[in-house]
Design a protein around this nucleic acid. Structure first.
Lengths: 183, 183
DNA sequence: GTCTATAGGCAGATAGAC
DNA sequence: GTCTATCTGCCTATAGAC
């Protein structure tokens, strides 16, 4: 009976799922392994049976969160841009994008973490470009930077009016960069 | 003789100067008060004679770093954009921009920190817009998000080729958004 | 695999001598 | 104002029982 391995994978997934939300919301340093494990219904000691370190968990959580987000957004690029640069995305507890919420957190971590971030960024850039099997062009990179940067900046700003104006400006720009016929 | 107050202000400035560089480079959590004070030539205990908390120092360091950066860049907007979105800016130890380096760090801090960030962002947006006494328009906001987001993303990415392509794409976009005659 | 217990270290903030 | 010493609390990671 292969039940044990199934339960092992389920525990691992629960930890990962818990980590995705907590890390994306609060960054690496503000989240403790204790919180992640309690949120997953376990205690601290069990953590190291599944991951070797906190940074390894972080690295995998970034990939996992992005994969989950992609699975929930199989829509067209325009719908993605509007949802991404919406006020709802800013305060969202679940399904937030690690690219934006963690962008200035990544540079302080080790290489596997940076690899994860780069992989996710490249994948989303290709998706935004609209051409699945090619390197993203400059317009797609600009559109994605407007999305990621717009959300990151909006989260940092304190003035609601300015936040809405930043989101609107970036929405307009990203849509224009990704329009098939730019006029 | 008003010497004492002068020395007090000098000590405060040394702490602030030290904090600007360390915080901008490594973020809030990765920098200890110990490091800041040693870098300023003092010990931990003296810190609380000048600032009430670490977050208060952070808030003031963001304002101070931005002010210093503005004083060193009295040039035109195009020169600013090219210097900002250059590879040199990414690894720079001094004179880096807290807007980009700390963007996803700010949301986790208290209100005074967010106030500082918002103030600096607004001031730079006005500068980029080219019209000193008006609210920045959508094009200026987009240009600034391309600058801040471009640098933040580039710092996180692991692939040198992708980094250069992101910087180039954002440079092109920011220059186009700020051109007086957009065609 | 998961638990409790603990090792070992570092942080922010305060107290009191000078 | 600056120093040394300390309080208090939290963290990652490990050890060993079950």
């Amino acid at each position: 009976m292969p039940w044990p391995s199934t339960r092992r994978a389920e525990s691992r997934d629960r930890i990962l799922f818990s980590a995705e939300r907590l890390f994306t919301q609060s960054g690496f340093d503000q989240v403790s392994i204790d919180q992640v494990m309690q949120n997953a219904g376990m205690t601290r000691g069990a953590f190291y049976a599944h991951f070797r370190s906190k940074q390894e968990l972080y690295s995998e959580a970034i990939l996992s969160a992005a994969w989950r987000m992609g699975a929930q957004h199989p829509t067209d690029v325009e719908t993605l841009i509007r949802a991404y640069l919406s006020p709802e995305h800013l305060g969202q507890k679940k399904g937030s994008c690690p690219l934006a919420f963690l962008v200035s957190d990544i540079g302080q971590r080790d290489q596997p973490v940076r690899d994860s971030y780069t992989k996710v960024f490249s994948a989303l850039a290709t998706k935004v470009s609209g051409v699945p099997d090619a390197e993203p062009d400059a317009a797609a990179l600009r559109a994605l930077v407007l999305m990621v940067g717009g959300v990151a900046v909006a989260r940092a700003l304190n003035d609601p009016i300015l936040v809405e104006r930043v989101l609107a400006a970036c929405r307009e720009g990203a849509l224009s960069e990704t329009a098939s016929v730019p006029l």
